[in-house]
Design a protein around this nucleic acid. Sequence first.
DNA 1: ATTATTTCTTGATGTACATCAATGCACAGG
DNA 2: CCTGTGCATTGATGTACATCAAGAAATAAT
Lengths: 157, 157
Amino acid sequence: MKTISVKKGELLQRKGDLNTRAYIVESGLLRSYIIDDKGKEHIYMFGAENWLVADNCHTDTPCQLFIDALEDSIIRVATKEELLTSNPDIKPLLKRLNIMQNRIIMLMSSSAANRYIHFIETYPNIVQRIPQKLIASYLGITPEALSRVRHEIVHKK
Amino acid sequence: MKTISVKKGELLQRKGDLNTRAYIVESGLLRSYIIDDKGKEHIYMFGAENWLVADNCHTDTPCQLFIDALEDSIIRVATKEELLTSNPDIKPLLKRLNIMQNRIIMLMSSSAANRYIHFIETYPNIVQRIPQKLIASYLGITPEALSRVRHEIVHKK
DNA sequence: ATTATTTCTTGATGTACATCAATGCACAGG
DNA sequence: CCTGTGCATTGATGTACATCAAGAAATAAT
């Protein structure tokens, strides 16, 4: 388990990599994302301070997610085995499951506007640090759509 | 940890319940789902033989998911604490995370048609046991849309 | 400061899927 | 046998969001 320093924009992992690591963010901001068949990026997760960013694929199978740095960051890197043996606590895993459950529910049942409102309430600290187009990508909409959603929200209040 | 028998249609858990249990399916088929603000159901997960069905909420907070039986089923019921102490293996949790990751990626990046194709490849045994409207609900589309998607697929081949 | 790059906004148009409504089917119960 | 009830299909229309294109505004680079 080593600690590394990465520059904004640096790529830590690409789709197809094998035996990928787990990245624990000490400072800075990471993102994991996919690129679909049309070449479009979709952000899977942001990882700020104390977050664990990793592709949850089975060992020895190619991963799906790209991971890069949205800010200059300090990152602890561990193999997944290492991580699990050094920290056998399952609470973080359950928390992660809970977050993903919420994400799925959001994606299935909420409008773009509600997803955005939920996002800024849940991750107020991240909102300020990234351009809106990245929020749009996380929400599953285009930057244009997000711009209009925000306009609406202001005018309805 | 007790074993119970439930009839098709029986409700095991409703949104808002506290300290909800984990249900391990011995035989039969469960589903977990939400009901959105417009009263529409969205299936979160199917649970066939050997699957664990549970709301992944924090202890003592109201749960989000309804759970009911799609077939007459035999179910083992455990508190989550019980489950974790009796079976401290984290592999199933990781598998679950992997499945949810795939679900999120699907929802964000795939068309209705591709989500359907992926579903029938991933859960061929479940497909045959449930009406199409439930598959549609899992995929996040309407039964009408699924009907048209299926029509398309047949005619493209 | 000036230029270059990226981001945000706004408008016009397109499209995937939703909604509503009607019809046809299957099958379960009397 | 008929008759209800739920499911699948099909058509007509609606809508949320995508796409494309152009400017404005903000950030970064020189």
